[in-house]
Simulated assay, not measured.
Amino acid sequence: MLTNCYCGNLIPFSDCCEPYIKGIKAAPTAETLMRSRYSAYAVHAIEYLLKTTHISQRKYHSKKDIEQWAVSNQWVKLEVLQATEKTVEFKAYFLDDQLQPQVHHEKSTFKQQNGHWFYVDGKFY
């Protein structure tokens, strides 16, 4: 049974975010990268999350912390509120380790370098 992608697109994960996470394709837009990063949290693709964080920001993100955040939560839904060429505002809905509903609301900034998009930082609401 094929289900829709974790990122909310109405196509299977294997046809949507998985090719980006596996490095088969490069995300063509900041929004696509953000969606694939959400899916990466859902499938615990920690290396992808590190690789798609801009090199100038990687020192602020430990692999251990990213992995803990990814695996301790159950990722429920992604809602993209607004996207421009370099920013994406979204709400990520999840259940925390106590199974309490939570919402992560962020406006993320992205940068394109050498044909690849990278997450730079975010403003949290």
Rank of each mutant, 00 (worst) to 15 (best):
F94N: 06
I66G: 03
G8S: 02
E106I: 10
Q98E: 14
T29N: 02
T3V: 14
T3I: 14
L10F: 00
Y48L: 10
F90H: 04
F110S: 03
D97S: 09
L2K: 09
L49A: 03
G115D: 02
A45Q: 14
G8Q: 09
P19S: 08
R35D: 02
V76W: 03
I24F: 08
Y38N: 13
G8W: 14
H44F: 09
D96H: 00
Y119T: 04
M34E: 09
W69G: 04
N4L: 04
H44G: 00
K51G: 10
S108R: 12
A27K: 09
K64A: 15
Q74Y: 04
E85F: 01
F124K: 13
F118R: 07
S56D: 15
K22Y: 02
E106G: 00
R58Q: 12
I24M: 10
F13I: 12
E31W: 06
Y41R: 02
F94D: 03
V88D: 07
C16A: 00
N4S: 15
R37N: 06
Q102S: 01
Y60V: 04
H116C: 10
Q102M: 11
D65M: 10
R35M: 04
V80Q: 07
Q74I: 15
S14F: 02
E106F: 08
T3G: 03
F110K: 12
S39W: 14
R37G: 04
S14K: 02
G23L: 14
K77Y: 05
P19Y: 02
V88I: 14
V43W: 08
D121A: 12
D97G: 00
F13K: 03
Y20C: 03
L99M: 12
K86M: 06
K63V: 12
Y6K: 01
Q82W: 08
